[in-house]
C-alpha cells in the first residue's frame, strides 16, 4: 500500500463499481431481446453483398460500449474492380 493511496477515495474498488454498472445496465437491457449489433451487422453485410463480393474474413467488427453511447466499427476490405455485375432485368 503506497502512502499516496491513503488520499485517494477508494482506489480500484471505484473503478470496479463503474465498470460493473456500465456492463450490467447493458446486460439487463439486452437479456431478453435479440442483439442490436448482430442485427445491424447482418443487414449491413446483406446490403454490401448486393454490390460487391466480400470475403467475410475481411470484415472486422469492433465494439466499444460507453456510458451514454456505444460505437460499432465495421471495417470492410472491399476489393477493387467496381460493382458486381447485376443480372439484367428481364
Amino acid at each position: 500500500m503506497k502512502l499516496l493511496e491513503l488520499f485517494k477515495r477508494r482506489g480500484s474498488a471505484d473503478e470496479a463499481r463503474e465498470r460493473l454498472q456500465l456492463l450490467l445496465a447493458y446486460e439487463r437491457k439486452n437479456r431478453d431481446q435479440p442483439d442490436l449489433v448482430a442485427a445491424l451487422r447482418e443487414e449491413i453485410m446483406a446490403v454490401i453483398a448486393k454490390h460487391v463480393a466480400v470475403d467475410e474474413d475481411k470484415v472486422k467488427i469492433a465494439m466499444d460500449r460507453g456510458e451514454r453511447v456505444s460505437t460499432l466499427e465495421i471495417d470492410i476490405e472491399v476489393p477493387n474492380g467496381g460493382l458486381k455485375k447485376e443480372k439484367k432485368a428481364a
Binding site: 465498470r19 456492463l23 449489433v37 460500449r65
Partner: peptide, 12 residues
C-alpha cells in the same frame, strides 16, 4: 472478459 477488461468490447 471482465478480468481482462474487455467486457465493453464483446461482439461475438
Amino acid at each position: 472478459d471482465l478480468v481482462m477488461g474487455a467486457e465493453r468490447r464483446v461482439v461475438f
